[in-house]
Design a protein around this nucleic acid. Structure first.
Lengths: 186, 186
DNA sequence: GTCTATAGAGTGATAGAC
DNA sequence: GTCTATCACTCTATAGAC
């Protein structure tokens, strides 16, 4: 038995979905073992630090995904408006039009926040900074840009809460369209 | 020995803070016992249905608070604008300027949502409907009013996520001011 | 033999229910 | 307080690639 069936990298997305669904405390090793189809031995082989290390790895991967797909487009695209449009497209796809929640948002609301405070803060700070920088390039003042960026990033998190609460994905897409329209006009 | 130290009604607000802080699964009986200064026996005397009944009682009380303070002001004040202003004041006070999270929002994001789906849905639906009705009375079309109400209620939830993530209460109050300004002008 | 990925019995602690 | 189930985690034992 036992040759390479999975690698650490392959396990992280599965862990992400489990932490998303159950939070940090609710993600029991039984659920993780079931969700990854891995025995405890394999799990602790990949993550000797236990659940803490698993969550760190997941947050790290979320960070990297947003950095590559969202933040870099906002910061580096020659046309800032195009970068902002790309952000909304990527975010809508990433959150499956509201059916998937934001792991960092879930952690921010729970007592997990204290344990992962730096990562949670940095994730949102990086997003707000990147969006604000793009908005400055569209002609906003830094003050306007910062306030708008916070409103939009917060609005996206709220849209996730609301669409899940009402169980209507169109609430998520409607709010995202409204937010996008506010950034691209005036 | 054993005289009435607490009543069921007195326990509910304490339970609310525990569920807020730890979520449904994270609110262990040990934490509940410690937070309420009640033995397990007393807890099960008040809530024979266990944690499920405790959470239902808490959600019920949250519903009633919002109905009395927020929804009724929105629906019944002669001056709809005044009702909207009162909503923002009450909400800002209720959430302690962002330091306290929304219990229903926390439940909406977690797998608790399925267990309490009706209550979670009804809470947000009632809020959105009451705000939209007030906005119609300020001269908006029903379509505008509904979209704006969803954006604002979602925006408040997002402001809670963001202010906790960044650990800055002024993010919450800033976003609420922006949302309020959007409703009271144009 | 060594190394890595696997499975899972077994640990004490703690869970919720009563 | 007592119950059983489950918790996170440890440890031993395996199989196959070098």
């Amino acid at each position: 038995m036992a040759r390479v069936i999975a690698e650490r990298e392959d396990v992280i997305p599965m862990l992400a979905e489990i932490f998303r669904a159950y939070g940090f405390e609710g993600a029991s090793l039984a659920r993780i073992s079931e969700g990854t189809k891995l025995g405890k031995g394999s799990i602790y082989h990949f993550f000797p630090g236990g659940k803490e290390e698993m969550a760190q790895a997941v947050l790290e991967q979320v960070d990297q995904w947003f950095k590559q797909h969202v933040f870099d487009a906002l910061l580096e695209r020659a046309d800032a408006m195009e970068g902002i449009k790309a952000m909304f497209d990527d975010v809508s796809r990433y959150f499956l039009s509201g059916r998937r929640v934001c792991l960092v948002g879930v952690f921010a609301l729970g007592n997990e926040r204290d344990r992962f405070a730096n990562r949670v803060r940095d994730y949102f700070a990086a997003w707000i900074d990147a969006l604000a920088a793009a908005l400055v390039r569209t002609g906003r003042t830094p003050q306007e840009a910062s306030a708008l960026a916070k409103e939009v990033v917060g609005g996206i998190q709220g849209a996730l809460v609301l669409s899940r609460a009402l169980d209507q994905t169109d609430v998520f897409t409607d709010i995202l369209h409204t937010l996008q329209a506010r950034l691209l006009t005036s």
